[in-house]
Design a protein around this nucleic acid. Structure first.
Lengths: 339, 339
DNA sequence: CTGAAAGCGCTAACAC
DNA sequence: GTGTTAGCGCTTTCAG
């Protein structure tokens, strides 16, 4: 009740431990003891301090506290789009692995934008002890804004040994997917790639190698780009089939696109997999709720997130870092019903 | 190359700005200037400092830095399960709203466990300036571990005015859903509630009121509990229909459960909505990828997340907080195809 | 352009 | 039980 007359503008100055001490008529040390539940303090004194603290609306400075007892670790996790279920899974896994170690995770969603990522890099350096995630900016930006901070890329090859990286190797998985399709009689297999870069994706590279290994000609394995969304996949399959109605199967850059493809097929009256087989990439749980359930090249996101945290922990403590082989997550075919 | 012989154990002591200064033969301030891109510094000196810093693997202490220029704000966001798409959306919205203000968000996934939440509360207080999210622990726990820190609950009624809250009011939306079903001729409408607490959920309360308003008897509006997952919904609908085969429609606690119900219906050979209408709650985008697309009582998660951040910002700056009315997010029926 | 001094807010030692 | 003294590592004055 006593505080109801405070003018908002006066809130400016920070209430420090000193103010509380003065108000309670004790020393700063005693305030600290009361607030941190230390043993050596009189019950009445403690209560008085606590009351004074509440009255003044005192909040300890996390910086001052962190400075003196340097124990907390926090990791910056950079994700292009938290709403994409694949990244959600990676983030959730990383969060869990960090929690097991008692670390805090500051999450940055860069909205798939290079500018936003730069903005993140600018501020992240002074907030976290290490950085993990999907970074697309040049390494110089990291050198500039996060000098010396341990960095673990996900799914990106670093050129400088300063940076560590979790590799996603889908070559085997894609090969399995194509072998699976070929075994089922498919000879004309299209791909719905992403449409972000001028060049085809790494995943398309795996696809191209796999179809070539089965002697399929480029003319029989056309590719079109798709926006990374369900709608994007739906539109892209329309485009692809308009140009190549002879296709009997399609492999996609990711599951979201595949689900869009499924929808296009349904609306176009195509039976899946009888008229058109569809295989995605990611292996999301999401794939099991669509009809038919999506066959997909699956990545173990649990392991991916855990590995990233494990590696960053080693970098942080100076423990011997994991090698490239151990940092690789391999994809495998997860057959369901769509192909 | 010179640093290749460092023994891991020696990493213990922190490299401070002082070490860099000595190594570069300058004062600490000059190091600070070089690192922070200040104007008043000679190019050569700067380079020398930067080199020394890299050589020593120097990393500025974020605490010391934060202490002196107290500008960064960070918000603790507590989420029960990031993998549940509804919470993903809330988190993504909050992240975006925070980013617009230049704030950092530390995300805590409590895995829907009271123990994990307590663990979070224990550590969160010294890491963030304010707390937002789904908290289920008693308010005393917050008083104890996060004294004085602004707190904004989501979807929970605080008893103490110290705590702010974003209310989710689905009453109207549920009423619309039931009216929609009744208008389509349905008279026997079951509900798949959640199964977590001993008592029925608040959402069940809305359901009960809505069906009663249409004169439907409790015997015609049975309820069973479901685990909050697709599988849970699938199983629960099986249970419900086994006991009440006369039902022609079902309303569910959330979309995940509804999608499970859809799956059960499909496997049981029921046509949706002809044989059984299904209406979910949440209004997830996810609902549009299943077949038939899910009709749902939709919550504007974008607004929910933004509101939570807005309110916490007001609490933080001392600006007049939003009132209960403005802090309420109302749900509305989003008709698609399932009911 | 660079250095010296001061202090951000807190807690760990040590005194009393 | 409580107060005093020192810093934690950094950036800001302010002199030079």
């Amino acid at each position: 009740m006593a505080s109801s007359g405070i003018e908002p503008a006066m809130q400016r100055r920070r209430v420090t431990i000193h103010d509380v001490a003065r108000s309670a008529g004790v020393s700063r040390q005693t305030v600290s003891r009361a607030l941190n539940d230390k043993a050596e303090i009189d019950g009445a004194t403690k209560q008085r301090v606590l009351d004074a603290a509440r009255e003044l609306d005192y909040r300890p400075s996390r910086f001052a506290r962190g400075l003196v007892r340097q124990d907390t670790t926090s990791i910056g996790l950079v994700i292009p789009d938290l709403r994409n279920p694949f990244f959600t899974e990676v983030a959730a896994s990383a969060l869990q692995a960090a929690r097991e170690r008692g670390w805090h995770v500051v999450v940055y969603d860069t909205a798939d934008s290079a500018e936003q990522e730069l903005g993140t890099l600018r501020v992240i350096g002074s907030q976290v002890d290490a950085i993990v995630g999907y970074l697309s900016r040049p390494e110089e930006d990291l050198d500039r804004y996060a000098p010396g901070i341990p960095v673990v890329f996900i799914d990106r090859e670093p050129s400088n040994p300063r940076f560590s990286s979790i590799r996603v190797d889908g070559e085997d998985g894609v090969r399995q997917a194509i072998a699976h399709l070929v075994a089922a009689g498919h000879r004309r297999i299209g791909m719905l790639d992403h449409n972000r870069r001028p060049e085809p994706s790494v995943r398309h590279g795996w696809f191209a190698a796999a179809v070539a290994a089965h002697g399929l000609a480029p003319a029989d394995t056309p590719v079109v780009g798709a926006a990374q969304s369900v709608d994007g996949g739906e539109r892209a399959l329309g485009t692809l089939l308009a140009a190549h109605p002879e296709l009997t199967a399609v492999f996609t850059f990711n599951d979201l696109i595949a689900i869009g493809a499924l929808r296009h097929a349904r609306r176009a009256g195509l039976r899946v997999p009888a008229d058109l087989a569809v295989i995605g990439f990611d292996g999301l749980d999401l794939g099991s709720i669509v009809e038919p359930a999506l066959t997909s090249v699956a990545i173990d996101t649990q392991r991916l997130g855990a590995l990233a945290i494990e590696q960053v922990g080693r970098l942080l403590t100076g423990a011997p870092p994991l090698g490239a082989e151990q940092l690789t997550v391999r994809a495998t075919l997860r057959p369901r019903s769509s192909g």
